[in-house]
Nucleic acid binder design. Sequence first.
RNA 1: GCGCCCAUAGCUCAACUGGAUAGAGCAACGGCCUUCUAAGCCGUAGGUUACAGGUUCGACUCCUGUUGGGCGUACCA
Length: 544
Amino acid sequence: METYLQKIISQALLKLGLSEEQLPDIKIETPKDPTHGDAATNVAMVLPKILKKNPRAIAEELISHLESDPKKIKAIEIAGPGFINFRFAEDYLYDELAEILNSGTEFGKTTDNQGIKCLVEFVSANPTGPLTVGHGRNAVLGDTVSRLLEWTGADVQREYYFNNAGRQMRMLGLSVQARYLEELKLDSEFPEGGYEGGYIKDIAKQLLEEHGDKLADKEDVTLFKEKAETVIFEEIQNTLGRMNIEMDSFFNEHTLYEDGSIDQVVQTFREKELAYDKDGAVWFKTTEFGKDQDTVLIKSSGEPTYRLPDIAYHANKLDRGFDLCIDVFGADHIDTYPDVLSGIDVLGYDKEKVEVLVYQFVTLVKDGKPFKMSTRKANFVTLDELMDEVGEDVTRFFFLMRSPNTHLEFDITTAKETGEKNPVFYLQYAHARIQSILRKIDEIAEFIDDIDLSVLTHESEITLIKKLIAFPEAISLAAQHREPHRLITYLNELASSFTSFYHDCRIIGEVEEIMQARTGLAKASATVLANGLGILGIEAPDRM
RNA sequence: GCGCCCAUAGCUCAACUGGAUAGAGCAACGGCCUUCUAAGCCGUAGGUUACAGGUUCGACUCCUGUUGGGCGUACCA
């Protein structure tokens, strides 16, 4: 519909004497207030400067040249300062509704990103401990944005980037070793800044069971480290699985050292005189790109900082032929991003292909009081604990509910409510209700395929149909902005429209043709709810 | 100090990237179950969009400044 309106409007504008180049970008929007019609455009208000007439006069002339199909558009009006409002013809609504029933689980797919190869990198937590609540928002955002991109036609690969070398991992090994020796009642010193979480002890106990005290005099921490990595990675994948997240690939930072790509980056920087030596370290001239300080690439110890492999990693992604690379970062990591972009730009890649999705922090709230979390000490909340407490669907939903750009207050008390306070159940309940009706109808009568939908004329029915039709657009918008909460807002409105319809219009017990048409409408509603919940990675239950 | 993000109803948040009378949920108040799930529906009340300017037909949205909060500003990741 949108493209149709754009087409006829631009044709009319050409007749008004505008040249092709003067044609503005025609925006079609859905008015908030339904009395303003089903679609509206503001073109007449952006043209006065070119046409030297007032907006309303332009609108009137434009309308007189509009050739619209009466099967699609019922009425066109000018309103306010110069908006042109369109009202959809009922025939159009019925056709679209039939389309939903035909498309079923496919309904809502668009072609916005057709053929685009996309890599979404998310989670990317190093295997030093279980996933926490903070990782949860990252994981769910990354996965849902991936799903949205898939629904708009993109070919998406989900990738997890990790580092199992470096100081952090060494510290992990040392921590496990210390706990292991403690278990044996031997002399041990817990490393300064080590990992104090209880899971470290569990790993130590496993080692004790498998090896007895044979590891007591081992100087080398490698075995402890590797064991820890294996156990923790298994746990992480388990946690992701619970949340319906499946990674397509895991990328080990270390491969960038092995294949020489890190050296290559440094060499290229040096050739372009953007890297230099100072105080035994290698520096990147980030001041050239507007930073107030240069940045260390390789420490005087010879160890690269994380920025260097990050740059090499992004080059690697683009080498793999992706048209779009999305990184999902917490707000605390935002500072690296400009360096990475500058880096790949210097290497000759198109930095426009790299995009960062930044999300703000999560605060857990319980009984109105904030839960303080620190990863180092033992008092963090793991994702698994959170899911044990409030359930997988609720966890996913709450992480997606808010714009990524705002702090997320995760209220455990609300999340645990199974009733009215909890917005997840509202959507699931609407779906379960429909399924319940459909089950009853199956018992009552056989169905004819050929339903006459034009008997749907009640206000609640029309409102619901219009809402259903808007689903693909809701997906497009959410995908385009990389903001899943927009889809949630839509689904809430849809569920609300359905429930109003449910209260205003009975299905069972009405005359045959009404019952059939309403059953069709209910089915279409269930389809859209299920498809939408599917994108959010949440179950659409048949019973509740 | 500097950089990024945020400030909207009592609370948690929307507002289609500049559009029409700023909307939902919760909390409050008042109605609605002998009929398809009341985990629901309908209604009432609640606002100087932190503050002060500016840009224009039009600003929650863009620009400048102020206040208040979060994050960052490492040869940590």
